[in-house]
Design a protein around this nucleic acid. Structure first.
Lengths: 352, 352
DNA sequence: AACGTCTCCGTGAACGCTCACGTGAGCGGT
DNA sequence: ACCGCTCACGTGAGCGTTCACGGAGACGTT
């Protein structure tokens, strides 16, 4: 594969990797070189007692010079307290996930755990692949999974597994539930109470292919129905889960339904894109069209007008997931793990 | 430690972890239970040949039922091809890093490597701690490090180490260099050519405590000097590396120097905060004050007016780092690793 | 009947480390 | 001269796999 030199990159990179990997230096080699036993080298390396300070230094120097580094495998084999968890997210570039990741990282660090991160892009193939990988590589998994077969596979195995956003799934699978129903209800009723009747919905298109229960769209229909507000099915536009996706969907929506007065978006990313495009097309926000997001991303404060949204405590979401993983790892059975629910809070800024 | 129930979280979490960790099920136990040898179980688990399909299924079922999962340590000990790299970043919440992470993740995945992520917050103590940890836990490190003693420690050990943004350091330490000089020069000359003379700089305060060469500030002084433009030292304001930090710094700057016509910010985050605050205080952008950022974050497109910035290909940065790590891992010596430079590109949007 | 060839399965060793011991030297106290 | 103690260090075992073999049985070929 020829190296692709991206624009703005000098001295590009040709991966002509010489594969003469040097063999590992072992503790025994260090021991032999310094004329002591393995155990003494181990004492030096691990900063233990029962060793002469002078000997320690001598060993440390030799180890350094020889390029010795203890094998984490050999070490992990004998000590049982080295824990690594796998964090599976959909997209690092979606600001939702860095916040969750921050919570996971922090909670994991408090416990002295390592966190290895996987990106799926919400593709079915990747999700399945990553779940497979997880079984071999980590002690517990924390995952955001869209596709039900990936979820099934993940929870069927005997790896402690926690779902970020476990949706409406059985209580037996541990995870954090985000109360979309309460959130969507609060958000939509806010819009309705402010007089909006023609409320469109910009949905995440990823849920079209995944056979998952799409709570947000269903909730939209449900609440609108409860309030006796007729819904034109074409008010629902699928959007790619990104700012550009939101913009494109908004344009499609407007080309057919100029008369909607408010937009309820699947999330902030889509809402932001939609709002930006609406303004670019000359609409006033919120006078001509109001926008309501979901997630409470901080970038919602940057746009004009600042985005009204249903805020989710994403950091806490990550923290709780780690705590649940800890319970599982501690030997608790899956159905004993207490339920945790995160309640979206309506944050009224200025877009609605 | 009592559980803190964050607002918006029901059914909060008390970590009364029962620590009766169940002992590991080993391959031998599965072998015994199914009446075969270890090796046969191994063949079943690893999908190898030389095993009767029927036996395989029987073993697989038993393993599943017994909760068997191969130990990655034992496995890693005997196979030498399981590679894990450590990615050390300053702050997941700063959009710069998710982009780098995306590049690293993608490149690592292509190679079948695992990536474990560490967050330092650019704190000296954390940086040193993380570097220490790295030596034990991974096969190679890719790190964004601010403090020179952390860098020294990282590069002194015998762990393959690649620096993201290696700054002006010796060529012997592998890493990617971002050509801040070229970037800053292009940016500042653009401002100067458009008639600006009183150009302030909002610097990252983290560099105050770190005894690192702060190229961006020095470059600012250098270029201004070369063009014969006098600089008031108070035009340089330290800012916390965040949007709020930029806003606060801008407010301080304006309280003393209302007459600056342009702001050159350490990065986009600071620039965005500054610009937002300036507008809130009634200034017109760019008429009253122009803003120039650094990094080329996509959120710069969200603010009004969209931020003019020096764009860095962050994804490519991460990819190159992985490629360099691969070279090192392949046995290449540190000074043989070809130099890679990333050239910031001026993207003129509307803030300057 | 002897021999080769498959197919399926088992055995010993090795991976690199830590843990629980055991050991000998040195030294002060009785 | 003996005991007891501390300090510094060494020895054997074991952690859970995979790898390179070796071997028994079934079956066909000469």
């Amino acid at each position: 594969m020829a190296a692709q030199y991206a624009e703005g990159v000098r001295g590009g990179y040709s991966p002509n990797v010489p594969t003469n990997r040097k063999p590992r230096v072992t503790i025994d080699q260090v021991a032999q070189a310094t004329g002591v036993s393995r155990q003494t080298v181990s004492r030096a390396i691990n900063n233990k007692t029962e060793i002469d300070p002078e000997t320690r230094q001598r060993i440390l120097d030799a180890a350094q010079a020889m390029g010795y580094r203890p094998s984490r495998f050999a070490r992990g084999l004998v000590r049982q307290d080295l824990i690594t968890i796998g964090l599976v997210i959909a997209d690092v570039l979606n600001p939702f996930f860095p916040e969750v990741t921050a919570g996971v990282l922090e909670a994991a660090e408090r416990r002295g755990w390592q966190v290895v991160v996987y990106n799926t892009g919400s593709e079915r193939r990747k999700e399945l692949e990553v779940v497979d990988m997880l079984f071999d590589q980590v002690d517990a998994g924390i995952a955001f999974l869209l596709h039900h077969d990936a979820i099934a596979k993940a929870t069927a195995g005997n790896l402690p597994f926690v779902l970020l956003d476990k949706g409406g799934r059985a209580p037996a699978v541990p995870g954090v539930r985000i109360d979309f129903e309460g959130g969507a209800r609060r958000g939509l009723e806010y819009l309705i109470d402010r007089g909006h009747r023609r409320i469109a919905m910009l949905d995440d298109e990823a849920y079209l292919s995944a056979e998952a229960p799409n709570t947000r769209r269903e909730l939209y229909l449900k609440v609108m129905g409860e309030r006796g507000i007729p819904v034109d099915i074409n008010w629902i536009q699928p959007a790619h889960n990104s700012i550009d996706g939101g913009a494109a969907a908004m344009e499609r929506l407007l080309s057919a339904h100029k008369d909607v007065t408010a937009v309820f978006a699947y999330n902030d990313l889509i809402a932001i894109g939609a709002q930006l495009r609406a303004r670019a097309l000359g609409l006033g926000v919120p006078e001509d069209c109001a926008f309501l997001g979901f997630d409470g991303l901080s970038i919602g404060e940057l746009v004009e007008p600042p985005l009204t949204t249903l805020h989710i405590d994403k950091r806490r979401l990550g923290e709780i997931a780690v705590e649940q993983a800890a319970l599982l790892l501690g030997g608790m059975s899956e159905d004993e793990v207490p339920e945790a629910v995160i309640e979206p809070q309506l944050i009224v800024r200025a877009s609605a």
